[in-house]
Write a protein that binds this DNA or RNA. Structure first.
Length: 597
RNA sequence: GGUCGCGUAGCUCAGUUGGAUAGAGCAAUAGCCUUCUAAGCUAUGGGUCGAAGGUUCGAAUCCUUCCGCGAUCACCA
């Protein structure tokens, strides 16, 4: 049984025996003992004073005496103010370590009864320009959270909803028609998403020129924006697209393919993938039917001009349009439809949307409207809203060209990793293939860790200088520790040292070693909490603490050169387990670990 | 203006359901490689946890007000 559960029950028994009352669950508050005090677990006795009717110190001492007497694993205790610090026998910790080595996926929930099916949507790019730093945060979060949730024994499906239609897509298409001179990714040697992005920018430049011309000619800015010939042409193109005009559709297909092929490369380099990709061009008409049904049920209403609305004033929100007066869908309408469709496709219990925090309102409304339409699962829609990524000089602005391109960034990180590795002489003796692999692992690891270690909901600053610092709380630091451990393991094999299947529980271990085991013990709970909170950051912080502890241990202890066989085996065994957890945890962040670096 | 989020060391971030003396990294300074990878380890300095009230045995954490920053409130997506 789990040690903390056992302690909790023991305290309940103790209170019943000593004070002849049954305490409520809430008043049994255990926490891990802080490092500056002796002990492993701490019972906060304040909540129990009502039952004991005695001062904190006395209550703690009485409980401590009882527990030490009656619980075999408790070998000692001390009392500081109202805190009862309990020490668990070292033999317990050693056998704990021994046992987890037999566990294939330590910390993961296995064979869960009635596992849920959980959908997670992330990435969701527009096909008019390449991915940038903001998308990277989204993709890394989505991919990692999917893995983290899966550790709790549920089925997870990753979906991507590609926004491949609309006026913004037509802008790139129009610009290509006008100024593209039949260029293709092949002819230009450019990645398709970047090529199309260039035309999107070109459109915007030309459009602005037209606007200022019109403004100079005496029109208001509003008028000019609507009347500029380019925007009118783009709108005309959208109408043609919706009317399935063959020429427009053909161009749209070509250009979308260029972009999607480009995205595939970025996704691959980033190491993310999906179980299913939805396209808005297929789903944008969905939801209309749901809205019409809602109208019949009377949960939605129609205005005089024929537009359909949801009244959310009861929920403290405004009214929200769901169908335009001409009967066409808006963004919300199609999201109602896609939500319904994917839940049906997968027979899913929950749906998570990884979308930036600028859409909090949208998802609030989506949830409420689905509820009004009578879908019980609307309760199980979660918006994982993450904060924007800013640069040290402020927000990224495409107008000022400060947008950090995803492909450039990935390449830059790899290049930096290579330079640093070469300077440190770390790449000597590796083949070209090995070098590339190592450098890629490190560069990407630095980037991913840098982004994922921050609490998703917070706005974060991406400082390029800091992101390529490989010391301290960074991906390469964690990777380095892993590589060190693997080096130890190789050395053990070289010297024909075999690890025992069971550790000798009488081995003398140091405080640092004990701390390491306790940190290992926290892994399952960390996974659970990270899954509940949809937060890779909690895993990153956990691994960092583990790795820091390990490096201190590594510095202060001999491992292979330890003469006592029991101790040597214990230390190797401990190192191996730490390595396994580093690997497991980093994998949940989508980060690879190298055997050498 | 309404709603929501954020505010912790010079900078970037941690801080469990409210618990002990608020922690890391970077930057600065001083040490540690004839010994398992120095991308490491150790030490020093650095704080009115935005401000003021309140609840509590106990508040960075919960409540109220205020200040600052941001997002959002389209027949755009």
């Amino acid at each position: 049984m789990d040690i903390e559960l056992m302690l909790k029950e023991a305290v309940i028994n103790a209170v019943e025996k000593l004070y002849e009352q049954t305490p409520d669950q809430k008043s049994i508050q255990f926490q891990r003992t802080r490092k500056d005090f002796d002990g492993d677990f701490t019972l906060v006795v304040f909540p129990l004073l009502r039952v004991s009717k005695k001062p904190p110190e006395q209550t703690a001492t009485e409980l401590g005496d009882y527990l030490k007497e009656n619980i075999a694993q408790i070998c000692d205790y001390n009392v500081i103010k109202g805190f009862l610090n309990l020490s668990i026998d070292k033999s317990f910790w050693i056998s704990y370590l021994s046992n987890i080595a037999k566990d294939d996926n330590f910390g993961f929930v296995k064979n869960k009864e009635n596992p849920k099916t959980i959908l997670i949507e992330y990435s969701s790019p527009n096909t008019n320009k390449p991915l940038h730093l903001g998308h990277i945060r989204n993709n890394l979060l989505g991919y990692s959270v999917a893995k983290i949730i899966a550790t709790q024994g549920d089925n997870v499906k990753k979906v991507n909803l590609v926004n491949d239609r609309g006026i913004h897509i037509c802008k790139s298409m129009l610009a290509w028609q006008k100024w593209g001179d039949s260029i293709t990714p092949e002819k230009s040697g450019k990645k398709g998403d970047h090529l199309v992005g260039d035309f999107y920018v070109k459109f915007d430049q030309e459009y602005k020129k037209e606007i200022s011309k019109l403004v100079d000619a005496g029109q208001t800015e509003e008028e000019a924006k609507q009347k500029a010939p380019l925007i009118q042409e783009a709108q005309e193109m959208l109408r043609k697209w919706e009317a399935k005009d063959p020429e427009t559709i053909s161009l749209w297909k070509d250009m979308n393919k260029w972009v999607l092929d480009g995205f595939d490369v970025t996704y691959k380099n980033l190491g993310v993938d999906f179980d299913k990709i939805y396209f808005e061009s297929n789903t944008y008409t969905l939801g209309k039917k749901l809205v019409e049904e809602g109208l019949e049920k009377g949960v939605l209403f129609k205005k005089e001009d024929g537009s359909v609305w949801a009244d959310l004033t009861e929920e403290g929100l405004d009214q929200k349009i769901l169908l335009r007066s001409d009967g066409t869908s808006v963004y919300m309408t199609q999201d109602l439809g896609t939500a319904h469709q994917r839940i049906t496709d997968y027979n899913a219990n929950e749906s998570i949307y990884v979308v930036g925090n600028e859409q909090i309102y949208h998802f609030q409304v989506l949830k409420i409207v689905l509820g009004k339409l009578g879908f019980e699962w609307s309760e199980n829609l979660h918006h994982l809203s993450y904060g924007m990524v800013e640069l040290p000089e402020g927000k990224m602005k495409s107008r000022e060209g400060t947008v950090v391109d995803a492909d450039d960034l990935i390449e830059g990180m790899t290049t930096t990793a290579e330079e640093m590795s070469r300077e440190l002489g770390k790449l000597d003796g590796f083949s070209e293939t090995e070098k590339n692999e190592i450098v890629n692992t490190i560069g990407l690891g630095a980037l991913k860790y840098f982004i994922l270690k921050v609490d998703p909901k917070k706005t974060m600053t991406f400082d390029p200088k800091e992101s390529i610092d490989f010391n301290g709380n960074t991906g390469p630091f964690v990777q380095y520790t892993y590589a060190r451990i693997q080096s130890l393991m190789r050395k053990a094999i070289d010297k024909n040292v075999e690890l025992p299947t069971d550790l000798n529980i009488k081995t003398k271990i140091s405080n640092k070693e004990l701390q390491l085991i306790k940190q290992i013990h926290n892994y399952p709970e960390t996974l659970k909490e990270a899954a509940e909170n949809l937060s890779p950051a909690q895993i990153a912080n956990y691994i960092y603490d583990l790795v820091k502890e390990f490096n201190q241990f590594y510095h202060d202890h001999h491992i292979m050169s330890e003469e006592d066989k029991n101790i040597r085996e214990f230390r190797l065994f401990l190192s191996k387990q730490v390595g396994e957890i580093i690997k497991s945890g980093m994998e949940l962040l989508g980060i690879n670990v190298p055997d050498r670096m």
